[in-house]
Amino acid sequence: MAIATSRSSMRYPQRTLDRAERAVRCAPFRLSLYQTMIIRSVDLAEISGRSGVDHGYVRKPMTELLVEAELLWLIQVGLLRREVDGQGLTNSFRVTPLGRQLVDKWHNLGKVELSATFRDRLYNAVSRWLRLPF
């Protein structure tokens, strides 16, 4: 899948980039989900249940509640945004410029899967629990 790179990338503090990368590595989603979210918005129903596995977005089926909780954390970190239509928020999500930067970086490095270390998982869990930008 070809990923279009943005011409004028925003500059983010290193702490922001580190936290965002850690959050993505710890998330249960596969890189293909983020690549798809660059091209189009992805509905919650496409990610949850058996559909998420069939689309290659997750390794094992997840409930809508769990998927939404993970997506909301990635919104707080700044990687994703929720789509809005004429009547308000929808159940669809897209990547932000920060998310695009990271996906482009991993795509250019030839990454297919992302893995988290124990330290990544610990820092991410503490960050989520305290809601502090570690």
Score class of each variant (00 low, 15 high):
residue 122 L to S: 07
residue 98 L to H: 05
residue 129 W to I: 12
residue 95 V to S: 02
residue 113 E to I: 07
residue 101 Q to R: 11
residue 115 S to G: 00
residue 96 T to N: 09
residue 98 L to Y: 06
residue 103 V to M: 01
residue 112 V to I: 09
residue 129 W to T: 15
residue 105 K to Y: 12
residue 102 L to V: 09
residue 94 R to G: 04
residue 126 V to K: 10
residue 128 R to M: 14
residue 128 R to C: 11
residue 100 R to Y: 01
residue 96 T to S: 12
residue 99 G to S: 04
residue 98 L to T: 08
residue 118 F to N: 01
residue 123 Y to R: 12
residue 121 R to V: 04
residue 113 E to M: 08
residue 95 V to P: 02
residue 114 L to P: 04
residue 102 L to I: 15
residue 122 L to C: 07
residue 109 L to R: 15
residue 119 R to S: 09
residue 128 R to I: 10
residue 112 V to S: 07
residue 125 A to K: 13
residue 130 L to Q: 14
residue 107 H to G: 00
residue 115 S to R: 11
residue 106 W to N: 08
residue 98 L to N: 07
residue 97 P to R: 07
residue 114 L to T: 06
residue 99 G to D: 04
residue 101 Q to A: 13
residue 93 F to K: 03
residue 92 S to I: 07
residue 101 Q to D: 15
residue 128 R to G: 13
residue 125 A to H: 14
residue 125 A to N: 14
residue 116 A to H: 06
residue 101 Q to N: 12
residue 109 L to Y: 08
residue 102 L to W: 07
residue 106 W to D: 06
residue 106 W to H: 12
residue 124 N to I: 01
residue 107 H to D: 11
residue 104 D to C: 11
residue 121 R to L: 10
residue 116 A to C: 07
residue 110 G to I: 05
residue 117 T to P: 03
residue 127 S to W: 06
residue 126 V to P: 04
residue 105 K to P: 00
residue 118 F to P: 00
residue 97 P to T: 02
residue 103 V to I: 15
residue 106 W to E: 09
residue 102 L to D: 05
residue 126 V to W: 13
residue 102 L to C: 07
residue 103 V to Q: 01
residue 129 W to Y: 15
residue 119 R to W: 03
residue 125 A to M: 12
residue 129 W to C: 13
residue 111 K to F: 13
residue 115 S to Q: 08
